[in-house]
Design a protein around this nucleic acid. Structure first.
Lengths: 202, 202
DNA sequence: CAGATGTTTAATACTAGGTATTAATAAGAG
DNA sequence: CTCTTATTAATACCTAGTATTAAACATCTG
């Protein structure tokens, strides 16, 4: 906290302090990429120049660049999985019958270790499509029975095809969804989907 | 394109040009919030000062503030479903046996129309937990059999509990996951999970 | 102890992408 | 011709930096 130190104190610290500080710096920025050099300098109790030097060595861009990256990376992504109701791009839709969507996978969707696309993205595409094909204002999934048949690598384009295979009464459907990459089936799922009226029941 | 105009041309334009330009300005920024004043000035064929004046009137912040907002709004959101390997917060983990995680739902996870949390978030939490509980470096889902029992509204906190209920050989497990909100079960799923060795098979 | 080296800090000039203010200019309306 | 509105220009200032040079401090070695 205090920036005033005796010579003894400085001597003891100086040796490993640099590496420790840089490790800490990286940790701080991983948790919060929006910290400015000034704030970091304060947290790590060194001058702003030292922080800049550390960043240069560690090849960490400045706060505006970091912010820009976070913003740009997430801008399209969030729109697809989070904000958009459909995961992937809807290519074809015959309400109450069939629908098709395309999802372009990328490295952000994969596990870091294995570079295999995380299966809930594949699931999300299929489920979204199953809900979209239903001819109802609002629909929710009740049951699903799914199988991942083949691993997907980032960059593969997943073509999902949904088909309503059974109707049970007015509000209940069974939708089959098959996703393929390069002609090969990677996923198959059966979704029991409920169309919702004005009542909030599912 | 050309910045040179006759007096006649300017006369004709002057009247409504301002409102049209401001409408256009808003459109440009809705499609791409990362445009600087200079770029906008170029696109709209006016000076940078005019753009700044327009922004001031329309109460539109500068590019850095816009970028910062996009970044901050999406940061936590994306981290939960996209970047983190676990969806939700891991509360408890006994490798190969049981695990627990908590997911705080919010409006961004819900359908706009119905304000019901989109089920693939619930699925993602459960699947992530099923993979986390496996005592292996890498695991992938093969099959899943799931049921959504109750709709979830934004703000509800989902407590997911995973339990390894069967082991088949060295690399195959069945994991049961139950998610509850306020003590009431909202989801139940059985996942067949494969532990992966150095081979990329699943 | 001096000198070499490594680490940290300071100082300075420069940048992008602005804000805020004042003033000049253009063009139509009365 | 004057008043008003719209636009542009000019100027001083801001944040959060980059890039560079120099100085101060720390630590080790001979």
């Amino acid at each position: 906290m205090t920036p005033h130190r005796t010579r003894k104190e400085r001597e003891n610290m100086a040796a490993d302090s640099k590496q420790k500080r840089r490790t800490q710096l990286k940790m701080y920025l991983e948790n919060n990429p929006f910290l400015t050099d000034e704030v970091l300098a304060d947290k790590l109790d060194v001058s702003v120049q030292t922080i800049r030097l550390d960043r240069a060595v560690l090849d960490i861009p400045d706060v505006r660049e970091r912010t820009r990256r976070v913003a740009e990376e997430n801008y399209s992504r969030v729109r697809s999985i989070n904000s958009g109701e459909i995961v992937g791009q809807l290519l074809d839709l015959h309400l109450g019958d069939t629908a098709t969507s395309l999802l372009e996978t990328n490295g952000d969707m994969a596990f870091e270790k294995t570079n295999i696309v995380r299966s809930h993205f594949i699931f999300a595409q299929a489920e979204s499509l199953a809900l979209a094909v239903i001819d109802a204002d609002v629909a929710v999934t009740g049951l699903a029975n799914i199988k991942y048949k083949k691993q997907v690598k980032p960059g593969e384009k997943l073509l999902a095809e949904a088909e309503v295979i059974r109707r049970k009464g007015d509000d209940k459907c069974v939708v089959l969804v098959e996703s393929a990459s390069g002609g090969e089936e990677v996923f198959r799922g059966k979704f029991v989907v409920f169309a919702l009226g004005s009542e909030g029941d599912g």
